[in-house]
Amino acid sequence: MAGRCVGVLLRRSCSGTAAPAAAETKPGFWERMKSKKMVIWTRSLLRDYKEACKDIVVGAKERPLKACVYISLLAGVGVCSSKAPSEDSFHCSLLEASASLLLLSPWTRSRTSDGHVQRLLDLRNESRLRHVKLVCFSLMYEAPYDPDCDLYDAQCPHLQPRITDFPGRVLDVGFLGHWWLLKNKMKDCDINEEEFSRLPSSMRAISYNDLHSQENEKLYEIKFQPVVMCEDPE
């Protein structure tokens, strides 16, 4: 009986001493995380970025002019990228241009503006307008077919337009929040060029400096002079 009690006490004492020893040798959560490959790679990456930032600061102090030029270029690229217009912006500008032309009489409407806007509207109705953003600016270009078209010519990869033909398919360039080609075509959209095509060359071209001048007054008086009809040589 005494021997059995001694054995039990010995086992309890051994288990009691072994548990603290095992608890002391087992590493904690953070110790295990430090040995992970991902953690080691992240720490080395952050260390490299830290050293690179220090080199940038030191280089900027040594060459401030060069640093200002680089910062200005990066800031300019960032502003241009943020101001590059989207596809929805082009559609809104196109509809505004079309509404502006509808308010004008066909006899006073510019043929150049009307033709350009009508062509873009036709391509829009045919789902042939495409948009691409190239960092600092955007492009709108013409696609040969609708994306849902199942014709053989539209699906065959060998019949697709070539890259060399891409400049001829560009419809507009978006930069700093404006579509410049559409804006240029809509300039003087309320002036019909054909209305003045039969006037003399001296009256057809009037510069800004001629407004409210003696030359302009002379041209105004010529307008009221009677028309001289030439006899037919036959």
Results as ranks from 00 to 15, higher is better:
Gly3Arg: 08
Cys5Thr: 02
Val6Trp: 00
Val6Ala: 09
Gly7Arg: 02
Leu9Gly: 04
Leu10Asp: 00
Arg11Leu: 12
Cys14Ile: 08
Ala21Pro: 04
Lys26Ala: 15
Pro27Arg: 00
Trp30Phe: 09
Arg32Asp: 00
Lys34Tyr: 05
Ile40Tyr: 02
Leu46Phe: 14
Leu46Val: 09
Asp48Ser: 10
Tyr49Thr: 02
Lys50Met: 12
Glu51Cys: 04
Val58Pro: 02
Lys66Gln: 10
Cys68Arg: 07
Cys68Lys: 04
Ser72Val: 02
Val79Asp: 14
Cys80Pro: 00
Ser82Thr: 06
Ala84Gly: 11
Glu87Thr: 01
Asp88Phe: 04
Asp88Ile: 03
Leu101Glu: 06
Leu102His: 05
Leu103Gly: 15
Pro106Asp: 15
Thr108Phe: 07
Arg109Val: 01
Ser110Tyr: 00
Ser110Leu: 02
His116Pro: 00
Val117Ala: 06
Leu123Ala: 12
Leu123Asn: 11
Glu126Phe: 10
His131Asn: 04
Val132Met: 12
Val132Ala: 14
Phe137Gln: 07
Ser138Gln: 13
Met140Ala: 08
Asp146Pro: 02
Asp148Met: 04
Asp148Arg: 08
Tyr152Ala: 14
Ala154Gln: 13
Gln155Asn: 14
His158Asn: 13
Leu159Thr: 11
Thr164Trp: 07
Thr164Cys: 12
Arg169Met: 14
Val170Pro: 11
Val170Trp: 14
Leu171Ala: 13
Asp172Glu: 07
His178Leu: 05
Met186Thr: 03
Cys189Phe: 12
Glu193Ile: 06
Glu193Tyr: 11
Glu193Asp: 15
Phe196Arg: 06
Ala205Cys: 14
Ala205Gln: 11
Ser207Tyr: 03
Ser213Gln: 05
Glu215Phe: 09
Tyr220Ser: 12
Ile222Glu: 07
Ile222Gln: 07
Ile222Cys: 04
Val228Asp: 06
Cys230Thr: 06
Pro233Trp: 01
